[in-house]
């Protein structure tokens, strides 16, 4: 029985710089994953409930506005509140290294910043995410 990995790619907050998010969405599709793309300008509430409705295994957040310190932990928190803490959350965008710890502590599984190859991100997913 083949189970497809389902990933939600979402842009929380108000910035519309979706180059990275869109490249990743394509890359995930080409890696054989099913990608639910929510587009820009999403609130953490929208992202969390969409992730649950779509029953994804992973939520990939991209933020370039500097608001990641509020937005990423909020998504993790909302998923937990709704009984979906098993949905993994990863993040990317313009995230200074000094913020990584705060994000990891908040429950973000991994942070990918510019310079990571697409292949290495796909590998990370194959290693760390499986359909339970």
């Amino acid at each position: 029985m083949e189970r497809k990995i389902r990933i939600m790619v979402a842009k929380p907050g108000l910035d519309g710089h979706d180059r990275g998010a869109r490249i990743l969405a394509r890359c995930f599709r080409d890696a054989g994953f099913e990608v639910i793309y929510t587009g820009c300008h999403q609130t953490p509430e929208q992202i969390a409930s969409a992730a649950i409705q779509e029953d994804v295994d992973l939520v990939g957040l991209s933020c370039l506005s500097g608001a990641h310190k509020y937005l990423f932990p909020k998504v993790v928190e909302l998923l937990k509140e709704q009984g979906a803490e098993d949905i993994a959350v990863i993040g990317g965008g313009i995230i200074p290294e000094q913020d990584f710890d705060l994000l990891y502590k908040a429950g973000v599984k991994e942070v990918f910043t510019p310079g990571r190859s697409l292949e290495s991100i796909v590998d990370w997913i194959r290693e760390n995410i499986s359909v339970q």
Binding site: G13, L14, D15, H41, S65, G66, A67, Y70, L71
Partner: peptide, 15 residues
């Protein structure tokens, strides 16, 4: 949006 709009949370003055 204004600063006190719910959708603006966490963004004020950032960029």
């Amino acid at each position: 949006y204004d600063t006190d709009s719910p959708i603006a949370r966490g963004e004020c003055g950032k960029c």
